[in-house]
Design a binder for these strands. Sequence first.
DNA 1: AGAAGGATCCCCACACATGC
DNA 2: GCATGTGTGGGGATCCTTCT
Length: 639
Amino acid sequence: MSAITWAEPVVIEPVDVLQFTRADAPEVSKKTQEVIVLSDASENLYPPSTSQVIRYLDSLDAGNTDCGQSLQVSTADVLRHAQLNNLADLPNTLPRSIDSGQLSSECAVAPCSSGAFPPPTSSTTAADVSPGHAVASGSPGSASLVPSASLSPEVVNNADLANVSQNSGGAAPLESVPTVSSSGAANAGGSSMTGGSGSGGVDIEACAPRRKRSEMGIEERNLMKQLGVEKQEKLMDAINNATTEYKAKLESIAKENSYKSARIKQLALHAPPIKSKELNEGHRKTLEEIQVALRQDVELLAVMKDEEEMKQYCEEYCNEKEAESKGKVQTMSGKSMAQVASKTLDLLQAQCNYAFLNSGTNLFGVTTHGSFEKDTAKGFFGAGPVDGFLCEMFGISLAKLGECFDAYVCTKEAMGKKKLSKADMAKATVKLINRCLEEITGVKDLVMAYSKYKKNIVAIYKVVIDGWPEDIPCVSPQLLTKVDNMKDLYEAWSEGHAAWRKLTSKEVRELKSPREPTGNCKQKRSQKVDNNEGDELQLSEDNEGSHARNKKLNVTAQKSHKRRRVEEENNGGANKKSARKGKGKDGSQEKTREKKKEVPVAAIPRVSKARKAKVNAAPISDGIADNNKGESNEYLEDE
DNA sequence: AGAAGGATCCCCACACATGC
DNA sequence: GCATGTGTGGGGATCCTTCT
């Protein structure tokens, strides 16, 4: 058996035979006229059933290899014969005539292959190229399988066929012709074929038991594959039809709303990425196979040398794929939904204004997007003294209420529905921390200073974080290397276990007292140590026991860190899987490690940003200190 | 310094083919 | 019908660079 190569299905335009019967019929060749004559009698023709085709292919796989010819049979050709009702779509060429009722259905299988063969780029005619004709045209390999009595005289005597039969025999240059070759096809008319339905056209498909895949021959399997592809293509045709209608609808919408159709499409259409299935069209081939096929494809190689032609092919391919992908799925884009939400908000506001003006109705509402990632419009609407009411009664502005609602909804959404990545969690956590810090200090755009938490945040704004997970270092969430740590921290903040809290007056006094100059170097040193440890977010702890515990934790963490490093070194890279992820060099990991180690102990002077924040926060700071004497304590105690 | 985004590598889910 | 293998895209993890 010769190697099987994949044959690309050839699309052939259907021919309307009736056009030749009209008075103004175009001139046709003698051969075509013969075909038309045969086609007129097609009522009595019985094309082969699928099962017949399969049995024929079985015979190919059965191993009747006494004939050394390498017949080329396209799977697409075979498939076309299996399509009972699609014969009219076949071209008015030779195979069609052979397909006629004079032939037994089995015999009609192979000959028809030539009809689908003409390669679009080949300079030779289909008949010259495709040895498939040999089966029907009396070639050495096929003569035995086709009962001569069953052949119509037109076919047998056809000059073209004679020419074909001379060319057949597997010697034709086929490099540029994508075909499925099978030497067994030469013997296609073997004994298994004689038991067919004959000219009676009895469909034996119903009688044929369902065959196991393992019992199928190669050709048969290919056929089954092809059938699947055809089925899928049929489905896609239906979907594409729906798409066409949908596009027409979009056009009408564009016209009605005075928008350009391109704009409507932009809002409504969504082109999904091309999946592998689409790229490979269901005929999976390995890269190596593709490379081999490419090397063998002289014509394609020649085309590849021509830049312009190649460019043209690429453009055609891209256009085709784009059309395909657009036709497959159409969903409303998020953008369009955002616009809908925005317009809804406008409408609500208009309704509020109308109600307020006409009936004096006071009302308000808050809208927010579903998640941090979405751009859906968020805001509020209403009419009446809403802001004053909220400020007086709840001490919060409408804008701030919207922010809170937004944070709440986004957090809930993220927790409940979407699985956030580490980066997403880090981002969300950073936003939560900073937003809460802004809220409690009243300083706009104030951001957390992780490395100088005590100096720049606690000392200045008199606020601390309560509930920061003990086993997680106080660094920027984005610097956390462990996903679990990130998750814990995120959950702590999103669920409210971690939160900012104003210092009590007692805590403020304790905070201030060690800072007073004592002139004692030793004390200074100890204070420095305290400060460093204070950066580990232990200021909220009142007792010294917590310091001791945290020291212990730090030691444990250092030990485990050291152990991990030793393990990594010992394993010689076994554990470097995660460490070497990303494009960073090996050294960069070390660099980062050192960087992380440095962060908590860095004694860096205050930066301008912190100073700026201090200036901004001066009144706030005072207010907190004053209030701490009374209300604050009570509030905290109540809590 | 901290935040955000990009680049790269790797893992995983999925679809499909194949073998038993 | 189930298990396995293969190819693919999506997304996560990590590190680096740039911006504020």
